[in-house]
Computed example of a mutant assay.
Amino acid sequence: MTCDARYWGKPKTLTRRGSLLHYWVCGPNDAPLVVLTHGASMDHRLFDAQLGALLEAGYRVLGWDVRGHGYSKPIGSACRVPVVVEDLIAILDRLEASEVVVVGQSFGGYVSQELLFRYPDRVTAICVVGATDLTQLPSRLEYVALRLSPSLFRIWPDRHLRRLVADRTAETESAKRYAHAATCQLSKREFVAVWKAVATALHAEPGYVIDRPLLLVHGEHDATGTIARDAPSWADRVPNCRYEVIPNAGHNANQDNPEAFNRVLLEFLDLHAPTR
């Protein structure tokens, strides 16, 4: 199955735990499958600028809307990282994809890490964009603040919250417009539920180290949480890690500077999951 590199084409659907999941598959069936998982309150269009580059390089691409996001409505009975991972596994099983490269941005970075943690044999390599180490807890004060954040967002004025997300997510005006439109697809209840999934995602795993090739990326101006601060030490802990800071980019680094991001991603893929 192939699709035009300029758009994702017609989605496929899968119902799981009260949500009608939507996903898109493009590229040759016999090529390495690259799975793209977006961040909280975004959708599959976050990776529009990567789709053409990946297809041109010969990869098969899976994009999807995580439950509650984009077309994947309603949010269903539960929205937690382990549930989202099982959603993705169900899609991969339907595609008969036994081994994949996972690329995740922000919350999608947590989902990608959890997939690797729970199903290591199904992951060839991993790219994390704008996220922290899922298995390392921050300081006690930072952790308490993270766990309390959904309650804060619940009472935050809705219109201001959507604009704040867009302004803090991206550097370029086009990426900010996308982020605002994407987050407006979620109701306030859905937004809080998704953010609760972010706030409860971390789990301490002493001694655990990613044993697959890791591409760790964040934007030069990413001021979200402790991502930029903690990335260098995380990179040092992973034996086979490439760490890159994308210039002139914020939290949605792949959108703000797709040329630089795509170059780094394709170099990483060519080394660890080359096309034939």
Rank of each mutant, 00 (worst) to 15 (best):
residue 224 T to R: 10
residue 119 Y to K: 11
residue 234 W to T: 10
residue 99 E to Q: 12
residue 43 D to F: 07
residue 3 C to L: 08
residue 246 I to H: 02
residue 212 R to S: 05
residue 256 D to E: 10
residue 225 G to T: 08
residue 14 L to K: 12
residue 140 R to G: 06
residue 2 T to Y: 10
residue 118 R to D: 14
residue 65 D to M: 02
residue 132 T to P: 00
residue 183 T to E: 13
residue 86 E to P: 04
residue 94 R to K: 08
residue 101 V to P: 01
residue 206 P to Q: 06
residue 48 D to S: 14
residue 138 P to E: 00
residue 267 E to N: 15
residue 249 A to H: 02
residue 99 E to L: 06
residue 124 T to A: 14
residue 91 I to M: 08
residue 27 G to I: 09
residue 106 S to I: 04
residue 237 R to W: 04
residue 219 G to M: 14
residue 219 G to F: 13
residue 230 D to G: 00
residue 47 F to Q: 09
residue 183 T to A: 15
residue 78 A to I: 08
residue 234 W to Y: 08
residue 259 E to H: 13
residue 153 F to G: 06
residue 34 V to I: 14
residue 115 L to K: 10
residue 107 F to T: 04
residue 60 R to D: 13
residue 139 S to I: 05
residue 263 R to D: 12
residue 215 L to R: 12
residue 39 G to K: 05
residue 222 D to Q: 04
residue 209 V to F: 06
residue 13 T to V: 14
residue 155 I to Q: 03
residue 252 N to P: 01
residue 145 A to Y: 00
residue 108 G to F: 05
residue 89 I to P: 01
residue 26 C to S: 13
residue 138 P to I: 01
residue 260 A to Y: 09
residue 236 D to R: 09
residue 51 L to Y: 08
residue 80 R to I: 01
residue 16 R to S: 12
residue 46 L to T: 14
residue 6 R to I: 07
residue 142 E to G: 06
residue 256 D to C: 11
residue 234 W to L: 11
residue 171 E to M: 10
residue 36 L to K: 05
residue 32 P to F: 07
residue 223 A to N: 13
residue 196 K to S: 15
residue 68 G to S: 08
residue 56 E to T: 15
residue 268 F to P: 09
residue 199 A to T: 10
residue 203 H to K: 15
residue 163 R to W: 12
residue 276 R to M: 12
residue 194 V to D: 05
residue 202 L to S: 00
residue 118 R to Y: 01
residue 233 S to M: 02
residue 87 D to S: 04
residue 74 P to S: 06
residue 239 P to Y: 00
residue 116 L to P: 04
residue 230 D to M: 01
residue 96 E to D: 13
residue 119 Y to V: 12
residue 83 V to G: 04
residue 91 I to H: 05
residue 74 P to V: 06
residue 32 P to E: 10
residue 230 D to E: 10
residue 210 I to L: 15
residue 128 V to M: 07
residue 54 L to R: 07
residue 41 S to Y: 08
residue 140 R to L: 11
residue 126 I to Y: 02
residue 168 R to V: 12
residue 275 T to R: 15
residue 198 V to D: 10
residue 178 Y to G: 09
residue 139 S to F: 02
residue 255 Q to R: 15
residue 152 L to E: 03
residue 13 T to A: 11
residue 225 G to W: 10
residue 147 R to G: 06
residue 220 E to R: 04
residue 11 P to K: 12
residue 243 Y to I: 00
residue 110 Y to V: 03
residue 210 I to M: 14
residue 151 S to Q: 09
residue 132 T to G: 09
residue 16 R to E: 11
residue 83 V to E: 12
residue 236 D to W: 00
residue 39 G to T: 05
residue 245 V to H: 00
residue 207 G to A: 14
residue 276 R to E: 14
residue 116 L to M: 13
residue 169 T to R: 08
residue 198 V to G: 09
residue 155 I to A: 07
residue 209 V to A: 10
residue 138 P to D: 01
residue 99 E to M: 06
residue 158 D to H: 05
residue 6 R to A: 13
residue 244 E to F: 03
residue 127 C to T: 13
residue 221 H to I: 07
residue 45 R to P: 03
residue 104 G to N: 05
residue 220 E to P: 12
residue 229 R to G: 06
residue 19 S to L: 07
residue 262 N to F: 08
residue 114 E to V: 03
